Simulated scan of single mutants.
Amino acid sequence: MRQIGKRIGVFILAALVLGFAGHAMALDKFEAELKVKEAAILVEKFMTSPDSGAPHWMLKRAKAVILIPNMVKAGFVVGGKYGHGVVCVRKADGSWSEPSFMVIAGANVGFQIGAESMDLFMFVMRERGLEGVLKNQVKFGVDASVAAGPVGRTAEASLSAASLSADVYSYSRAQGAFAGATVGAAGLEVDEDTNKSYYGKDATSKEILQGGKVVAPEAARHLMEVLARYSK
């Protein structure tokens, strides 16, 4: 009976989360600007965290990054997560693209009581992961494999191209604690309405990320510069 109740709970939460994501309220221009500024702060915090050697290594080699400031995790018995964020892609010359807005949502089973906010930093390391990001929608575990990023003083020394088994690696930061993060049954979807609010014109996520379609506002340029500084 308990298992049946849990399965029903998972189904209901998944339906609610996915429905919420599909009808998520777009950010207005001010909120979008604030989200980009938060993303830049997120990069600074992660890159200056103790034992951040592995994230530094990954950022220097990543094909794209996904930045979700203040992602909400909440629930009782069955947990869920939801958040607005941005994705930036590394260009051929090593610089970073303008940010495209994304929404992440998902459901996971676990005994989580109350609500928690955390920052999520994801490194797209393989071409398959990049192809997923360039689409309008990505289901982690289906379109791209995802794993918790390694941490610790010896993690960087053990990393190499051959040691990477996942398309995407994720890290979380909550209440000052830095760790590898599992995202479970999560999905990432392009936030087209927020892109339009922020850039003042219609542009697909692929057009934004591949360059030439939009002009980066000041906060976006700052985020691109921060990524460039730490990925040198």
Rank of each mutant, 00 (worst) to 15 (best):
G149M: 07
V151Q: 08
S158M: 13
G129V: 10
M122V: 15
G114C: 06
R153Q: 08
Y169E: 03
S170Q: 02
A166Q: 03
A179K: 07
A155I: 11
V138C: 06
D167R: 01
F140L: 14
G149K: 04
V146N: 08
Q175R: 08
A162N: 07
P150Y: 11
E116H: 06
A115K: 06
M125V: 15
S165H: 05
M125H: 05
G176M: 03
I113H: 05
L130D: 04
G152R: 01
L130M: 07
V151R: 13
V168R: 00
Q137P: 00
V133E: 00
F140N: 04
V138I: 15
A162R: 08
V146H: 03
M118P: 01
M122Q: 09
S165F: 09
Y171T: 01
F178Y: 03
K139C: 09
V146S: 05
G141T: 11
V168P: 01
F178S: 01
V151L: 09
M118T: 14
A179T: 10
S170D: 05
G129K: 06
Y171N: 03
G129S: 04
V124C: 06
V142F: 11
T154V: 10
S158K: 07
D119P: 12
G149L: 14
G176A: 02
V146I: 14
G152A: 14
A115R: 04
R128E: 10
N136C: 05
K135H: 10
S145A: 09
S163I: 11
V138S: 09
E127C: 12
V168K: 00
K135P: 00
